[in-house]
């Protein structure tokens, strides 16, 4: 099995540790992982702004970089969802279709493809899990509070394998944090208010760390935490799953 590691642009630039943890975790589990060096961006920032018709360049590059792998794995539910839903190439649609079908978010890849049942890691802290919407509702990484359906959560299933980790409960289990891509600047007031409320829910329940499957939501909440001089930290779920082993 050959896996292409897809590291979203902002993770590459700002949160390399999330990328490193994803790589190490996969290697630890015996997977052959390659990071194609010329990858850039999935095109989501443009598409969410209404310019999906300008993302052809991004899409072509993505298919070029990742077309040959058995799986494409990424530590971002949102970017994976964008590729899955919106990656098209008018002259190479067959290839694009294959790429769409083999892109995976890291936690789902661990639970559904690798069928991981135990992890060696240890993380003795109180952790709040922020369910990022695109992963949860888009990729169905977890059950959703709106639906009348059985409860499950792939990220939680993995966190439960980490020794010493104490998961804190939240008042609103799957409320959006307000990042929303460009929404975070175009609708600054509501975005920040949503972020503050989401952070508060974690703080009230004693979180030392806020984790999740999307670094973008965590970046937004980190911005709010730092502004209020909180020492609560954000950490990508791959870093926790890869910790202390």
């Amino acid at each position: 099995m050959r896996v292409g590691l897809f590291i979203p642009c902002y993770v590459d630039q700002f949160y390399p540790n999330a990328g490193i943890a994803t790589l190490q975790l996969l290697e630890k589990l015996g997977v052959e992982v390659v990071y194609p060096a010329n990858q850039t961006c999935c095109g989501q920032p443009m598409a969410n702004s209404g310019y999906e018709h300008l993302t052809e360049g991004c899409n072509r590059l993505f298919v070029d970089q990742f077309g040959d792998f058995d799986y494409i794995v990424s530590p971002s539910g949102s970017c994976v969802l964008h590729v899955k839903d919106h990656l098209h190439l008018h002259d190479r649609e067959a290839e694009a279709t294959v790429v769409r079908s083999k892109v995976w978010e890291i936690t789902a890849f661990l639970t559904d493809v690798l069928k991981v049942e135990k992890l060696p890691g240890r993380f003795p802290h109180k952790v709040g899990l922020h369910q990022s919407c695109h992963g949860q509702r888009g990729l169905k990484l977890a059950s959703m509070s709106e639906l009348v359906a059985p409860k499950f959560s792939k990220p939680l299933q993995l966190l439960n394998m980490v020794e010493g980790l104490e998961l804190i409960p939240l008042k609103r289990e799957d409320e959006c944090c307000g990042f929303g891509g460009t929404f975070c600047v175009t609708e600054e007031a509501v975005s920040v208010k949503m972020g503050k409320d989401r952070v508060e829910d974690h703080l009230e329940h004693g979180a030392e760390y806020i984790t999740g499957t999307d670094m973008s939501c965590l970046m937004h909440m980190e911005g709010i935490l730092r502004r209020k001089n909180s020492n609560v930290k954000v950490m990508h779920i791959a870093e926790i799953l890869n910790a202390g082993s």
């Binding site: 919407c133 509702r137 888009g138 709106e146 929303g180 891509g181 929404f183 175009t186 509501v190 975005s191």
Partner: peptide
């Protein structure tokens, strides 16, 4: 644009 596209 007045949405985060959270899907709820």
């Amino acid at each position: 644009f007045a949405s985060t596209l959270c899907g709820s």
